[in-house]
Amino acid sequence: MTTLATLKTGQTGRLTRLDAQRPVEQRLLAFGFLPGTRVRLARSAPLGDPLEIEFQNQSVTIRRSEAATIEIEPDAA
């Protein structure tokens, strides 16, 4: 299973599943991070955490631990 946390830097994919009830996911949903949204892992911070993800012409940071529960279907390389 691929999650946001296991994407490689620069890799893209589509959001397949997230647990909508948690505060982080609530915030992401408000940003328009809905199932089916295309997302790209832009980079991780110099100390390894958090991550920067890009979707719909915006950039958002998220902790690695939270990214690990967000399921992604990676685009074919």
Partner: peptide, 10 residues
Amino acid sequence: PPQPFVLELP
């Protein structure tokens, strides 16, 4: 609880 950190990089 661990603090969520969802922040827009504008």
